[in-house]
């Protein structure tokens, strides 16, 4: 399994049993106007996607505070996805520009902290991109399955 361990993963997580059929828990923050619509149309379009994602709808991706992301990890999320409208398409003019700034910090801090880059991802998804959303969730789930449970998962949480 060693080859799947990317930088920063803890010995503890590496040693943790990865029982077959383990389904990662992925928290996906979606903005009301685009990516949530994307998630919706992924379902409407019956695109195959795993049941790993827990979607949290926010009005704008700009509302997603790094604190929310930290909290998701601390509560046991194996990956956190920040999604929103494409740059230029923000319903609130420049909300996603602000997301970009915050994300840049968050990404840096999370990486420096030793959280693998697969566990925190940003993606711009429009309301019509149902397939993109489904593929994104599927890809991330696959990546996380390889990585195993998050090293920040609290004791007793599966």
């Amino acid at each position: 399994m060693n080859d799947s361990i990317s930088d920063g993963i803890s010995a503890e997580a590496a040693a943790a049993p990865k029982t077959d059929g383990w389904e990662p828990k992925i928290v996906a923050f979606c903005c009301n106007w685009c990516s949530y619509g994307g998630a919706d149309s992924a379902g409407m379009g019956r695109f195959q996607q795993p049941a790993s994602a827990r979607i949290i709808r926010v009005m704008c991706s700009g509302r997603i505070d790094p604190l929310h992301v930290f909290n998701a990890f601390l509560e046991g999320a194996d990956a956190v996805l920040v999604t929103g409208c494409h740059i230029g398409d923000c319903h609130y003019v420049n909300g996603n520009d602000k997301t970009k700034i915050k994300y840049k910090y968050l990404e840096n801090v999370a990486h420096e902290l030793g959280i693998e880059k697969e566990r925190l991802q940003l993606n711009w998804i429009s309301a019509s991109e149902g397939e993109k959303f489904a593929n994104f969730i599927r890809d991330v789930t696959e990546q996380i399955k390889k990585l195993g449970p998050s090293p920040l998962k609290p004791a007793g949480v599966v």
């Binding site: 604190l67 930290f70 909290n71 601390l74 968050l106 801090v109 902290l113 090293p151 920040l152």
Partner: peptide, 19 residues
């Protein structure tokens, strides 16, 4: 009372002090 693997206090401080 949170039994987190790392305290929220430190995570927020890390982020705020990054810049």
């Amino acid at each position: 009372g949170d039994a987190y693997k790392m305290s929220m206090y430190h995570l927020v401080r890390f982020l705020h002090l990054a810049d």
